[in-house]
């Protein structure tokens, strides 16, 4: 057997196949389709390919259920800070400026009592959460 046996040309195949993928000849026999039928089928396929490709891309773009996990910032009396949407496993961007007269911002913590401060560089988000501002008097 030479290497050619790996890829016989379709027109060399016999006109009757025993079975195709679903027990019937999965592909129309080349000899049974004339040039006109072949080109119209090819054109229909081209349209189908474009339609399916477009559908897949649109589905991807518009079917995200949860673009990220919501992180809200409770400023505990300071000025408002907008919440963020962080993808799973991501880190939180240090939030915008917040001011509270007479107090200095120590940092943000996952608990209102303010024990451990959130490490914005290393801590990752795995669920929706609220960060509470930790203030210390001036």
């Amino acid at each position: 057997m030479t290497n050619d046996s790996k890829q016989t040309r379709p027109e060399d195949r016999p006109s009757g196949r025993r079975y195709g993928l679903f027990g019937v000849s999965a592909y129309p026999q080349k000899s049974s389709l004339d040039e006109k039928q072949r080109s119209s089928m090819s054109r229909a396929l081209s349209i189908v390919i474009v339609l399916i490709a477009a559908a897949v891309i649109l589905l991807m773009l518009f079917s995200q259920s949860s673009p990220g996990l919501t992180v809200t910032f409770d400023t505990m009396g300071g000025s408002e800070v907008s919440s963020q949407s962080i993808p799973y496993g991501g880190t939180i961007e240090p939030p915008g400026e917040t001011v509270r007269p007479g107090y200095v911002l120590e940092g943000w913590s996952i608990a209102p009592e303010g024990e451990a401060l959130w490490d914005f560089e290393h801590d990752t988000v795995t669920d929706t959460l609220t960060l509470y501002a930790v203030w210390s008097p001036q």
């Binding site: 897949v56 589905l59 991807m60 079917s63 995200q64 259920s65 799973y88």
Partner: peptide, 21 residues
Amino acid sequence: LAVDQNMQYIIKGAIILLACS
């Protein structure tokens, strides 16, 4: 992208159709 799991089935099927076409 956190695409809905159910939608992922549709996309997978569409890709198979695409590959066959």
